[in-house]
């Protein structure tokens, strides 16, 4: 099937099976490798992208459901005010370790802050518990989300 995808503000045409997950269209068909493969089952959040501003697990999102939507990956996150605040906060709090899960973490955080500009600790936990970090950067992610929230409300 032929699909048009709008990814990080750019239009792409792909010809792939309709059930092919967006993750593999991004990584293997288009060569956009910023979005990561972690579990293939929606359990770890490493593959998180935005579809029309909402966080989605691209490993479980068939390409047919992503067409016609505004897809944002880590490469395009800085195009929004919230995205820039999140990335700035991630640097300010020196969050990353291995960094592999962090694109997904930042996409989830940006979606959380878009919905809720001043999340409580419990709301941060609820919004972020779908994203696993094996290096254990959770404490700094929490701090970075608060940092970004402060930045956005300033």
């Amino acid at each position: 099937m032929d699909y048009r995808l709008r990814i990080d503000g750019q239009d792409h045409a792909v010809s792939v099976p309709e059930d092919m997950p967006l993750l593999w269209v991004l990584r293997d068909v288009l060569g956009l490798t910023g979005t990561k493969f972690g579990c293939g089952a929606g359990l770890c959040g490493a593959c998180t992208v935005h579809l029309d501003g909402a966080a989605a697990r691209s490993c479980l999102t068939p390409v047919s459901m992503a067409t016609g939507k505004e897809i944002v990956t880590i490469a395009g996150l800085s195009s929004t005010r919230v995205g820039r605040a999140v990335q700035g906060a991630w640097l300010a709090q020196d969050v990353v370790q291995c960094g592999y899960c962090q694109p997904g973490q930042m996409l989830s955080a940006a979606a959380l802050l878009t919905d809720n500009s001043d999340p409580s600790d419990d709301e941060i936990d609820a919004g972020m518990s779908g994203n696993i970090c094996r290096c254990g950067t959770y404490q700094r992610i929490r701090a970075a989300i608060r940092h970004a929230a402060d930045e956005l409300s300033a």
Partner: peptide, 9 residues
């Protein structure tokens, strides 16, 4: 290595 990891590059 923080910046490249935050930018996703």
């Amino acid at each position: 290595d923080g910046e490249a990891k935050v930018k996703g590059t």
